[in-house]
Amino acid sequence: MIAWPLPPDTLDETDRRILDALQEGFPLTSRPFAAAGAALGLAEGEMIERIAALREMGAITRFGPFFDAAAMGGDFCLCAMAVPAGRFQEVAALLNRRCEVEHACERSHALNMWFVLAVETADDIDRLATEIESESGLAILRFPELAAFFVGFGVRA
């Protein structure tokens, strides 16, 4: 999925407040839209309509539970590839077809394609990376986390 920037006035102030607030979390209660809306001074119906519109226009990539592969008995690993410029779209499409690719972005470096593999079984990382290597004909560098030095409160990429 490659989204193009929406025109800058597409979202109003209320839309932006909803996006900011719901990034932090969403209530696990019987009427969560009413509860989340109350905190923003919005009625339940308006919350639902606005979120539906935001989703429709592509302003939301995901709304719901975010899983942690490691806590499920699986694993995740940051990976990088050096993709020749002419093959970039093709390799991006190849990654997009894989449900185990959690996040992919282009970065300004010779290693220009970065992505996270998340799998439900720990040894699947290597099997999967090898599969993608043979499909693409490109080497995948695996960057597992060896030690975490405090996971800060900054916005995650």
Binding site: L6, P8, F26, I51, G58, T61, P65, F67, D68
Partner: peptide
């Protein structure tokens, strides 16, 4: 969520679309 299987229930904005 308590066991950490779910990191959070939340919304992820599409930063590419939003600028």
């Amino acid at each position: 969520q308590a066991r950490g299987v779910i990191r959070r229930i939340a919304l992820a904005p599409n930063h590419d679309a939003l600028g």
